[in-house]
Simulated assay, not measured.
Amino acid sequence: MGSYERVEILERLDGIADIYMPDVKWPDDAAAATYSKAPEYWENVTDSLREMHRQVGDLRMDDRGLATGGLLVRHLVMPNHVESANGVMEYVAGLSEDTFVDVIAQYQPYSRARSEEFYDEIDRGSTEEEYREVVDHAREAGLERLSLDESMLSSRSGFLDAS
């Protein structure tokens, strides 16, 4: 299930889904409409995340580290959108500081994002500095259950997977 799913659909899955793993990209409706062609994205996402969390709660793992139920939010850090990422982290922390968040740094521009001026803002991958700012902000917001891209943090001590 995506985070842009309508709550009415999610309600039909109540008691059926054990784990939700939505991708959450934009708390900014303008960026969502521009880059993801997703109007009213943030309102849909916040409603969906609340419903997912209501149904399954925080991510639970067994003694082998395998997820057995709950919510795991994935966030792809986009270039030039640190404030946007910070908005996602604040919302998720407000939902529950025990939310497990996979902070992803794998964005690479392809196709028109590389060649058209319209996409200049996202025509590169995220920088290590941008990624670190997002991780710092996530922790400041109270999130500690973070899965991090160690390659973006390799030269800085104190950043470890807190899963």
Rank of each mutant, 00 (worst) to 15 (best):
R12P: 01
M152L: 08
G2I: 02
L66K: 00
D136Y: 10
S36C: 08
L143F: 09
E51F: 05
S111I: 03
F118G: 00
I16N: 00
L49N: 02
R139T: 12
T34G: 07
I122S: 03
S163D: 12
L95C: 08
D14Y: 02
E129Y: 07
D149G: 10
V134L: 10
A162Y: 07
E51H: 03
G158Q: 13
Q55F: 05
E11Q: 15
A138V: 05
G87P: 14
V135A: 06
T99N: 15
A162E: 14
P27D: 14
G87F: 14
R114H: 07
T99R: 03
F159G: 03
E117H: 03
V82T: 01
L153F: 11
T127W: 11
S126A: 15
A32W: 10
E130N: 02
I16G: 00
R112C: 07
K25W: 13
Y35K: 03
D63M: 06
E128K: 14
T99I: 14
T34F: 13
R132E: 13
Q108S: 08
D98A: 10
D98S: 11
F100L: 12
V135I: 13
E116S: 14
D120R: 15
D28K: 04
L148Y: 10
R156T: 15
S126Y: 05
V73F: 13
F118S: 01
H75V: 06
V7T: 11
